[in-house]
Design a binder for these strands. Structure first.
Lengths: 286, 286
DNA sequence: CAAGAATTTCGTAATTTGACTACATTAATC
DNA sequence: GATTAATGTAGTCAAATTACGAAATTCTTG
């Protein structure tokens, strides 16, 4: 199981040209050596020229060779630091719990690394002008969608949720161009959601998706927050993608609040005060 | 609290000269910025000259500035080094999002440190013999309760949710001694929940609470997973306690699965397979 | 199927950035 | 007032990056 840039190299391997593939393979086999090497050394070892190495970096979406080295250091750090040991039958309750939390933390750290490449600015711009935000999700993702709706409405924006196939389809059918659909989907392959979003897209609604970037849903969406599904080898591994989606929506909500500015701030403050007043009187009556 | 080069900087701080201390402090406060900066930028920000920055690196026993950056990247991979910084109006959407994620990671790391003191073993013992698990929560915690129910039922245990005052009270009124109530409550002060759980306790139902240990609810509960509420000084700070509760319930579910053993394993496998078969056929029909 | 146009792929050579060194100067300490 | 440590200035050198052009590949079109 690899993470970070090494995983990305594997994923992008098919798109690379012949020379670039040679570079990818050499780096893949000698990542530690690469960290200490100069462009010249990497180029020589892969049997290509120096600019080709840079082009390779750019094709991966990186700024340059320096950026590659930085990310390699990061990627090589994780396994050591955090030997993601799977839970097994020999674990007691506490050890198992600790391992699960380690995994959850790992998920969020990986996510954090990807934030710079995510379209937060665009999403905020789209959402500030929205007539309504519609949060969509099926099954476990439905809970995330509900939670998100509950979070975003406090900014003073009209929000609704659609967490079953019928509602999703119907809502898509009456979508306006100023509606924004925020779709949470682990794999992005459920046909109900994909077809519903295609309909919404035809009606020029905006679609923001938290899903696998290679999925059909991602193709339909205007903005994609990439959540690569991790292959769960272990039965006990929980769906930590839920946690990532939740955290991501937390982040988006805050970004949106900043984008809206003062009115959102006031609404947030008001809703918090409402809760704490309620609580104060509740305590008194105890 | 910190690890790697950041910790080393802290330790070596007394040995440093005046200019070097300025460098150390700036790097300590802006580690991520340092990673992307050149010597010149660091020197300017710390108000010193470039060679002084290099001498600073050497004094830490490093080869040079490059080495420092490498080690910073490595250190920043470690979750302990994610510090919570408040979001402010000057932040762009991406920076704000990154800060929120940093805070979420911090929350989970703190939570992980507390796991040894939490009653996982007792909770698992109670739950394995349960007739039904009832997940209880109001408002935002209701979403967590729903999610948890959706998670635990896959183990083959009867699960239900109660996320409004009426349902909670009614369920408590008919509780049996073999029911286990899993109560999610941020503050543990809502009177509806506190009184309902008092009733359930009278009927000898077991109560597991994820809440503030000093709250009235915690007093009533048999087992408490302490979730200290963090005072939110900042309007933009999201309720990261939700995330902690969710992660905690993930951990508890896995611990329970281990406690139950083979039958739970089979149920988990079966429910996973059901999903992936559905997905496979869904893909085909696209 | 071949010729040629167009695009992509790749390398050579020049440019620039930025880390690092040598040395001078200032401040601190004895 | 001498000695040592601390810091800065100016220069050097290596290494990343860019500009440009050649080669190879793919795509047309007769």
């Amino acid at each position: 199981m690899t993470t970070g840039i090494l995983r990305q190299i594997d994923l992008d391997l098919p798109r690379l040209s012949r020379s670039e593939t040679r570079i990818a393979e050499w780096i893949r086999e000698n990542p530690r050596q690469t960290v200490d090497a100069s462009i010249g050394e990497v180029a020589a070892n892969a049997g290509v020229s120096e600019p080709t190495v840079i082009r390779f970096c750019r094709r991966l979406g990186l700024a340059g060779f320096r950026d590659l080295k930085t990310r390699l250091v990061a990627a090589l750090q994780s396994p050591e630091n955090f030997l993601h040991r799977d839970v097994d039958d020999a674990d007691g309750p506490s050890e198992a719990a600790a391992k699960v939390l380690d995994g959850s933390i790992r998920t969020l750290v990986d996510l954090r690394e990807q934030t710079p490449t995510m379209p937060f600015r665009a999403a905020v711009e789209t959402m500030t002008t929205a007539r309504e935000l519609v949060f969509v999700g099926l099954g476990a993702s439905g809970h995330v969608a509900r939670d998100a709706s509950h979070k975003f409405f406090r900014l003073g924006i009209p929000c609704s949720t659609a967490v079953d196939a019928q509602t999703i389809l119907q809502r898509a059918a009456i979508a306006s161009a100023r509606d924004v659909f925020v779709v949470v989907s682990h794999t992005g392959t459920w046909p109900e959601i994909v077809t519903a979003m295609a309909i919404a897209a035809e009606r020029h609604a905006r679609i923001v998706a938290l899903t696998d970037p290679r999925s059909p849903l991602a193709t339909t969406a205007d903005l994609v927050f990439a959540c690569h599904p991790v292959e769960d080898t272990n039965v006990f591994t929980p769906m930590s993608s839920r946690l990532a989606q939740l955290a991501l929506l937390d982040a988006l909500q805050v970004a949106l609040a900043l984008g809206i500015g003062e009115p959102a701030k006031q609404n947030l403050r008001a809703s918090k005060e409402a809760l704490s007043e309620m609580r104060a009187s509740a305590c008194g009556s105890n």
